[in-house]
Nucleic acid binder design. Structure first.
Length: 598
DNA sequence: CATGATAGCGCG
DNA sequence: AAAGCGCGCTATCATG
C-alpha cells in the first residue's frame, strides 16, 4: 500500500491530496483532501494504526522537516526526485517507461533544487503552529520552482503529477533487467532521504565549552576582532624572522612563495607535503602556523557561533549528492570535521553515544561483488589488510593497504602502483572486476553499481578529445591528450563501482539500523533529551553519518539494545545485498556514556 | 562590487 | 606538484 502525497489541484500551500493506491497499474483506491495544517495529525494517525504505508512524495527535503518539527516520523517513503535521478541514468531500468508520455514528466529531469544555504531554526524555536513556511515550499527555491510551472497539476509537487511519476517509475523498474536490485536501491535511497532529514532535526550532540577549551589550548584566548590568536601571532613572527622579512603577509601564497625563494628554499608550492621534505629554520613554525590557521578559519570561534546551537551541530546532509551515490553535505563542513574536534561530541546526561564504523568497507564490497573467495577469506578476521599479509601476497600491513587502495583507485606508479600486480596474482577475480570497469570507462562506456546506479556518460568535451585523436591529421599531442583523458575516465569508472556499491551497503546498513531503533519505542519522559527535537527526545536515533561510519544517540535504557541493532544491521545489510556471500563486514564499535542525571 | 578559478587542507 | 578516487570550505587573486 502506498499513499501519494502532493498538493491538491489548485490547493498549493493550502490543501494536500492523499491518494491511496495498490498496484501501480490499477486505478487509485481513494483520494482524501486534507488542509495543510492537519497533515501531521493525519499522517501520524495513519502510522499509528494498521499496516504502515509507503508515503510517496516528490521531495523528502520539502515535505518531511515540517512533520519532524511537529514530532511526527514515518517509517517508509518513496522519494520521487531521488529515485528519478537513479532511474534516469540506470542501465538496469527501462528508460522508455520512465519517459512514456504523461504531462510534464520532463520536470523530473531538471537539476535538483538547490539546498537551502542557511540552517532552519532549531525545532524548539519553530512555531508550534504548522504553518506553510515550515514546509519550505514557500521559501526561496520551492516557490521559484512552483511558480515556474505553468499549471499546478504539472508541477512535481502536485498529487496528480506525483501519481503519474510514481507509475512511470514503477514501470521503469518492473520492465528493467533487475527489478529486485533496483527496488532495493530505491527503497534504500528513499530511506536515506528520511534519515538525512531526521539527523538534521535531531542534530549531533556538541559541547561548545569543550570545543572552546580546545581552541584556547591550541590557539590561545579568543582574540578581539581583527587580531590573530596569540599562538598564531607567535608562529607568524617566528616565520617572518626566519625569513628575515618582518612585513610578510603569510596568508598570501604568491608572496609567501617568493619570500621562501629569497631565503633559498626553492619549493614550487607552499603546500605542506612539499615543505616537509626540506630542512630550514622556517619550516617548523610555518607548518605549525598553517595548522593553527586551518583550525581557526575552518572550525574556530566563528564556526562554533554559526553552527552549534543549544548543544547540537545540525549540518544539512545531501543524499545522492555525489555521482557515486555517496552523500554530500552543505554547510558546516560536516563531512570534513577534523578528528581533533571529535572530543566535543559528547552525549547528553543520561544518554550515550554509539559510534560504529565498518573496517575496510570498500575492499570488502569489492570482494563480495566479484565473488572473490580468496579476498573474502583474507577478510574473515577484523582486519582485511592483515588477512592479505597472511595470504602471502604482500609482506606488511602498510603494503597491503597501499596495494588495495592502488587497485581501487587505479594507481600506476610509485609504491602503490608497484604493489598492484601482486594483488592481481593473489586476487584475480576482484582485480578483473575493477580492471574491466576501468576498460569500459576508457572506451566511453558506462558502468553500474551492484544495485543499479550507473555512471554518468562522458561529456561532450571528453568525446571531442577522443574523436580528435582518430582524425586523419591527428598528431602525437592529440593522441597523448586522448589517452590521458581516457585513462582519467577509466580511473573514475574503476572507482565508481566500488565507491558506489559501498555507498549502497552503507545505506542498507543505516536504513536497517533506523528501523530497528524505531522499533525500540519511546523511553519514559524522565529520560528525555528535548534538545533532539520533538520527534527524537525520547528515542534512540541516528545522529551522524560519514560514508562508512554512524553515530547513534541513545537513552541509557536503550544503549544495549541500540548497540545490538547496529551490529545486527551490518550482518543484515550484507545478506540483503549479497545473499549468501561469505564476505564479513566487521564493525568497530565504541560506547560513550553521558553524565548521570541528577 | 560581484562572480569564478585556484591553492590548500580537512574528511572517507 | 602527488603517486591514485570522491567530496566541501576558506582565502586569495583574477576577471567581468
Amino acid at each position: 500500500m502506498v499513499i501519494i502525497v502532493g498538493w491538491a489541484a489548485g490547493g498549493r500551500g493550502h490543501s494536500v491530496a492523499l491518494t491511496e493506491a495498490g498496484a501501480a497499474t490499477a486505478p487509485p483506491l481513494a483520494t482524501r483532501i486534507v488542509p495543510l495544517a492537519q497533515l501531521p495529525g493525519v499522517i501520524a494517525a495513519r502510522e499509528a494504526s494498521g499496516p504502515k504505508p509507503r508515503w510517496v512524495w516528490h521531495d523528502t527535503a520539502q515535505w518531511y522537516p515540517a512533520l519532524l518539527a511537529a514530532g511526527v516520523t514515518i517509517e517508509r517513503c518513496h522519494d520521487l526526485r531521488l529515485c528519478h535521478a537513479i532511474l534516469h541514468g540506470s542501465e538496469l531500468a527501462a528508460a522508455r517507461a520512465l519517459h512514456s508520455g504523461g504531462v510534464g514528466e520532463s520536470v523530473w529531469d531538471a537539476p535538483p533544487a538547490p539546498q537551502l544555504l542557511t540552517p532552519p531554526p532549531p525545532p524548539h524555536a519553530a512555531s508550534a503552529l504548522f504553518d506553510i513556511d515550515d514546509f519550505g515550499v514557500s521559501t526561496a527555491h520551492g516557490s521559484a520552482r512552483a511558480q515556474d510551472a505553468t499549471a499546478d497539476e504539472t508541477a512535481p509537487a502536485s498529487a496528480v503529477e506525483a501519481l503519474a511519476e510514481w507509475r512511470r517509475q514503477t514501470a521503469a523498474v518492473a520492465e528493467g533487467s533487475a527489478p529486485e536490485r533496483l527496488r532495493l536501491l530505491l527503497a534504500a535511497e528513499s530511506a536515506g532521504a528520511l534519515m538525512a532529514a531526521e539527523m538534521h532535526a535531531a542534530g549531533l550532540p556538541w559541547r561548545a565549552e569543550v570545543h572552546e577549551h580546545l581552541l584556547v589550548a591550541t590557539l590561545g584566548p579568543k582574540p578581539v576582532a581583527g587580531a590573530l590568536p596569540e599562538r598564531m601571532e607567535l608562529r607568524a613572527r617566528a616565520v617572518r624572522s626566519a625569513l628575515g622579512e618582518p612585513e610578510l603577509h603569510l596568508e598570501s601564497q604568491p608572496r609567501l612563495l617568493r619570500a621562501l625563494h629569497r631565503a633559498g628554499l626553492m619549493v614550487e608550492s607552499t603546500s605542506r607535503w612539499e615543505l616537509r621534505k626540506h630542512t630550514h629554520p622556517v619550516i617548523e613554525p610555518l607548518l605549525e602556523y598553517k595548522t593553527l590557521a586551518r583550525l581557526l578559519s575552518a572550525n574556530g570561534w566563528a564556526w562554533l557561533e554559526e553552527w552549534v546551537h543549544a548543544g547540537r551541530f545540525r549540518p544539512t546532509f545531501v543524499p545522492g549528492g555525489v555521482v557515486t551515490g555517496r552523500w554530500a553535505s552543505s554547510g558546516g563542513g560536516a563531512l570534513q570535521l577534523p578528528k581533533q574536534l571529535r572530543q566535543a561530541v559528547l552525549p547528553d546526561p543520561g544518554w550515550a553515544l554509539i559510534t560504529a564504523d565498518v573496517a575496510q568497507l570498500e575492499p570488502r564490497v569489492l570482494a563480495a561483488m566479484a565473488g572473490d573467495a580468496a579476498m573474502a577469506a583474507a577478510g574473515r578476521g577484523a582486519d582485511l589488510y592483515e588477512g592479505i599479509v597472511a595470504s602471502g601476497a604482500v609482506d606488511t600491513r602498510e603494503h597491503a593497504k597501499l596495494a588495495v587502495l592502488g587497485a581501487m583507485y587505479g594507481a600506476t606508479t610509485g609504491e602503490s602502483g608497484r604493489l598492484v600486480p601482486r594483488l592481481r596474482r593473489a586476487f584475480p577475480d576482484a582485480m578483473r572486476l575493477v580492471d574491466r570497469a576501468a576498460g569500459a570507462g576508457e572506451r566511453g562506456e558506462g558502468v553500474t553499481t551492484w544495485l543499479g546506479r550507473s555512471s554518468p556518460p562522458p561529456g561532450a568535451r571528453w568525446r571531442t578529445v577522443q574523436a580528435a585523436a582518430t582524425q586523419p591529421g591527428a598528431g602525437a599531442a592529440e593522441e597523448r591528450r586522448a589517452r590521458q583523458s581516457a585513462r582519467d575516465r577509466g580511473r573514475f569508472t574503476r572507482n565508481f563501482i566500488v565507491q558506489g556499491t559501498a555507498a549502497e551497503w552503507a545505506l542498507c546498513w543505516m536504513a536497517e539500523i533506523r528501523l530497528r531503533l524505531a522499533a525500540l519505542g519511546d523511553v519514559p519522559a524522565a529520560s528525555a533529551a528535548p534538545r533532539s527535537g520533538p520527534a527524537f527526545a525520547r528515542r534512540a536515533h541516528l545522529a551522524f553519518f560519514l560514508h562508512d561510519e554512524i553515530i547513534v544517540h541513545a537513552p541509557r535504557e536503550q544503549v544495549d539494545a541500540a548497540a545490538s541493532a547496529v551490529r545486527e544491521a551490518a550482518a543484515s545489510a550484507g545478506r540483503l545485498m549479497f545473499g549468501g556471500s561469505s564476505v564479513d563486514f566487521p564493525l568497530e564499535l565504541h560506547l560513550q556514556h553521558g553524565a548521570s542525571e541528577t
